[in-house]
Amino acid sequence: MKKVRIGVIGAGLRGGLAQYWHKPDGESEIVALADISEARQQKFQEMIGSPLFLTKDYRDLLNRDDIDAIAVLSPDYLHEEHVIAALQAGKHVYSEKPLAITVEGCDRIIEAWQASGKHLMVGFNMRYMSMYQTMKGLIDSGAIGELKAVWVRHFVGFGGYFYYHDWHGQSKNTTSLLLQKGSHDLDVIHWISGRYTTKVSAFGSLDYYGGNMPNNLTCPECSLKKTCPEYVPHTFTECAFREEIDVEDNNMLIMELEGGVKASYLQCHFTPDYSRNYTFIGTEGRIENDDVNGKVYLKTRKTNTWKEFSDVTYDMKSEKGSHGGADPKIAQDFVELVLYDKEPLTTPFAGRMSVAVGCAATESIRSGGKVVEVSQTSSIVHN
């Protein structure tokens, strides 16, 4: 195989990723799209430029011999169905995170992957961001000694627009936003620390969004749109205060990782700003990021070595492409995985474990904060 011919399922929020795969004169090309919306089909076709096979039924892609791989960019609750069907049809698969919305769903996906002989890659694009690669490199080099604690705060300044004006606001579609939004952060904690979570205790609630507004109310039709702070005129327009919303809009997790490392994760969807703040603390110092200003800070403590004499600030260089240059990198890694068997930075098991933590934390939240063991497995290859 000299070129990966890719069919896409879902042209919604992550549909833009496909532009990095469409290189007709290169090693990958988008050749087909399945999406239930003709309007999204047309917009996607315009973005790609080249003529595509378009359909509303994703199964039409699986039967085509001119498609080598499937990119599953559909809503979370459809990932399990779409990924398994594509693997069973003999296609390589790229799946957006979360891998599924239940641990059992993830395990079924991984079993189908291992039986298929095909490649499966999970879309953890934060592993491809220079900021977090820098932090991992520092920890792996021993710059802060032995890692002991991790603190993460996620200010989701666009939480209402992203998650409460459409399907994300219902737990039947997401389980919770600890899977949809939090899966990135939980994965980064696992990846940078090199350890998976073993147990978790969590608290969370729905304190701002949701309410008693009709489920069929949209922003353009609302009589309060001139004064409502959550009014949006386009794209996602379902009322953010509708009755059916049941997903927590702020969460606080305490986790114990393998080897006794402690971690905390805080997420809020009604903050005025957007930022991810990571702090890793070791026996010889700590590192902390500032993603707003593109910096990573290394702070040292007394060690009776040369290390204690200086702190270091790392300035991130700007990179081209969405998500800080991560999207073109992860797209290329999928191509090289399929063509050359080159191992990417992400793994299916890592995708499973971020979901397992999110599900355990959600169980803890909805049962009063009890300690919940994170589902482990010995029957799946941990790579």
Results as ranks from 00 to 15, higher is better:
residue 6 I to T: 05
residue 6 I to Q: 08
residue 7 G to F: 09
residue 11 A to P: 07
residue 30 I to Y: 03
residue 35 D to V: 00
residue 47 M to E: 15
residue 55 T to H: 10
residue 57 D to C: 02
residue 82 H to I: 00
residue 84 I to A: 10
residue 86 A to R: 12
residue 87 L to R: 10
residue 91 K to Y: 06
residue 93 V to R: 10
residue 96 E to I: 00
residue 98 P to G: 03
residue 100 A to P: 05
residue 104 E to I: 01
residue 108 R to H: 14
residue 114 Q to I: 00
residue 119 H to T: 11
residue 121 M to P: 07
residue 121 M to K: 03
residue 126 M to F: 15
residue 129 M to I: 12
residue 134 T to G: 00
residue 136 K to P: 00
residue 140 D to F: 08
residue 161 Y to M: 11
residue 163 Y to H: 14
residue 163 Y to N: 15
residue 164 Y to H: 09
residue 165 H to W: 07
residue 178 L to A: 09
residue 181 K to H: 13
residue 187 D to Y: 04
residue 192 I to D: 11
residue 194 G to S: 06
residue 194 G to V: 05
residue 195 R to M: 06
residue 200 V to M: 02
residue 200 V to N: 06
residue 207 D to K: 12
residue 210 G to Y: 00
residue 213 M to L: 05
residue 216 N to V: 01
residue 216 N to Y: 04
residue 218 T to K: 15
residue 219 C to P: 08
residue 229 P to C: 01
residue 234 H to Q: 12
residue 235 T to W: 14
residue 238 E to W: 11
residue 244 E to G: 12
residue 246 D to Q: 05
residue 251 N to M: 14
residue 252 M to Y: 13
residue 259 G to M: 07
residue 262 K to I: 13
residue 270 F to T: 14
residue 270 F to N: 15
residue 271 T to C: 06
residue 273 D to S: 07
residue 282 G to W: 14
residue 287 I to E: 09
residue 290 D to T: 08
residue 306 W to A: 15
residue 313 T to Q: 11
residue 313 T to P: 00
residue 314 Y to S: 06
residue 320 K to Q: 15
residue 325 G to E: 13
residue 326 A to N: 07
residue 332 Q to T: 03
residue 335 V to P: 03
residue 346 T to A: 11
residue 348 P to R: 03
residue 351 G to Y: 07
residue 354 S to F: 11
residue 355 V to L: 08
residue 355 V to D: 09
residue 356 A to G: 11
residue 357 V to T: 13
residue 357 V to H: 05
residue 367 S to F: 00
residue 369 G to F: 04
residue 370 K to M: 03
residue 373 E to I: 08
residue 374 V to M: 09
residue 377 T to I: 01
residue 379 S to N: 15
